[in-house]
Amino acid sequence: MSEAPKTWIAFGDIHQSLKFVDLLPELEKASGVIVTGDLTNHSPAGAVEKVWEAIYSRNPNILAQQGNMDRTNVTEFLKEKNANLHCEFRELEPGIKVMGVGCSIPTPFGTPGEITEEEMAQYLEDTHARLGDYEQLLLVVHDAPFNTSLDVIGNGMHVGSKAVRAFIEKHQPEIVLCGHIHESRGEDSVGKSRIFNPGMASGGGYVLVSIDNGRLDATLKQI
């Protein structure tokens, strides 16, 4: 008899809006929670703690990373909780690993968690180099890959990261979770990599990540 699938609930762009956490189905039953970034809005005092408590009260197994709207204190807090995914990785199942890189490339708004394309590329490659052997990879990034349906803003421009796209093209992770561009909720692909942007959490979007009979899969969901 095959084992029951293991599932993770993934979302991002919380921006301190927590009502949706109570509405997420199956959160207690999930193996864990993955947050792609933007837990706060410029990380005022006590903000990341409130976000953490809201999620932790329903599922204590959390992996999360800072987005462009989070200051470095978010990463430090997550490290203290052994939950940081930014420039880190974990093994979800034998042969199946998850790695994360948060932040975003520069925006017109001068947000605190911005890095250059060169830094983004370095973070991605350096983290990947430490992974060791794996059979399947779940990549968690905050910034969306450039020139997909997931990085389009209201005026039709593609504003995602070219470094993220180049990394996906090169390494072809099975599943990619991203966010950052609130208005581009959806699913796309680059090569064999399936890419998901659930949109802003307050809009009710999330991704159900599963491992069933040794295969990594994901589905875009809506509350």
Rank of each mutant, 00 (worst) to 15 (best):
A144H: 07
V35Y: 03
E119D: 15
V176Q: 02
P5Q: 01
G204C: 07
E114G: 06
P106A: 14
N61G: 00
F146N: 08
G191N: 12
P44R: 09
I153C: 07
L138H: 10
T111Y: 01
K19H: 14
N41E: 15
E117G: 09
H182C: 01
S57W: 04
G160Q: 03
L63C: 06
V21D: 01
I55H: 01
Q136N: 04
T111S: 09
Q16M: 14
P94N: 10
I96E: 00
G132K: 13
N197F: 01
S31K: 14
L139K: 07
E125Y: 09
S202V: 10
F109T: 12
A121M: 13
E119N: 13
A166M: 03
A121T: 09
T7K: 00
G132D: 10
L150Y: 02
L208P: 00
K29W: 11
P198W: 10
H86S: 08
N147Q: 13
L150S: 02
K79S: 11
E114D: 04
A47I: 02
W8M: 02
D13R: 07
L220G: 05
P198G: 08
A166D: 02
A166Q: 10
M120S: 07
H171L: 04
V35A: 08
F196Q: 09
E174R: 15
V51Q: 01
F89Q: 05
L23N: 04
S57G: 08
S104T: 15
G186K: 05
E117D: 10
Q65K: 03
L220C: 07
K6S: 13
R165F: 10
D133H: 15
I223N: 12
G132T: 07
T72R: 14
E3R: 13
R90H: 10
P44F: 14
K192G: 08
K162T: 13
L63N: 03
H182A: 03
Q66Y: 09
S104H: 12
N73S: 14
L124G: 11
I34G: 05
L23F: 04
T36D: 00
V48S: 00
L131S: 10
A45H: 10
M99N: 08
L78A: 06
G110Y: 13
A4M: 14
G67F: 02
F20P: 01
G102K: 00
R90C: 12
K162I: 11
T219M: 13
L23R: 04
E174I: 09
E125N: 14
W8V: 06
L138V: 12
D212N: 11
P94F: 10
K50I: 00
D13L: 05
Q65M: 12
G67H: 03
D70Y: 06
L63H: 14
G204V: 04
S210L: 06
G214H: 06
E118R: 15
R215D: 11
G113C: 03
L137P: 05
G179R: 02
K81L: 03
